[in-house]
Amino acid sequence: MAIQKGKDLLLKIADGAGGFTTVAGLRSRSLSFNAELVDVTHSESAGRWRELLAGAGVKKASVSGAGVFRDDASDALVRGLVFDGAAAVFQIVIPDFGRVEGPFQVTGLDYKGDHAGEVAYDLALESAGALAFTTI
Rank of each mutant, 00 (worst) to 15 (best):
G65F: 10
N34G: 13
L10P: 03
A54R: 11
L26S: 10
A17H: 11
L10T: 03
D39V: 06
G19M: 05
G55M: 02
K60S: 14
V40C: 01
A54I: 15
V23H: 02
V68R: 15
L11N: 02
A54M: 10
T41V: 14
V78N: 00
G16P: 00
L9F: 14
T21K: 05
D72R: 02
T22W: 05
V23Y: 03
F33D: 15
A46Q: 15
R50D: 11
V63M: 05
A35Y: 13
W49L: 12
R50V: 15
D72C: 04
E51C: 09
V63H: 02
G57R: 03
I13S: 02
D15A: 01
K12N: 03
W49F: 07
A61S: 05
A76F: 00
L53T: 08
S74L: 05
N34V: 07
R29I: 07
G67S: 08
E44V: 15
F33Q: 12
E36P: 10
S62D: 12
A17R: 06
L52H: 11
V63R: 02
T21S: 04
L31Y: 09
A14W: 06
H42C: 11
V78E: 00
A46E: 14
L52Y: 13
V58S: 14
D71P: 15
K12S: 01
T21H: 05
L77C: 08
T41G: 10
V68D: 08
E51K: 12
R48P: 12
L26Y: 06
A35N: 14
L26T: 10
A24T: 04
V58E: 09
L10F: 12
K59E: 09
G18C: 13
E51M: 07
A56C: 06
G57T: 03
K60V: 12
E44K: 13
L26R: 07
A24D: 09
E44A: 12
S43M: 08
V58Q: 15
A17I: 03
V40K: 01
D75P: 03
G57H: 05
G55N: 07
V23G: 05
A76R: 01
G47N: 11
V63Q: 02
L11C: 02
G65D: 07
T21F: 02
L53M: 13
D72F: 01
A76G: 01
L37G: 13
S28K: 09
L10Q: 08
A17P: 03
K12F: 00
A76L: 01
V63N: 01
L26A: 11
K59I: 11
E51F: 04
G19A: 09
D71H: 14
S62M: 10
A66V: 06
A24M: 04
A61W: 08
V23S: 03
A76H: 00
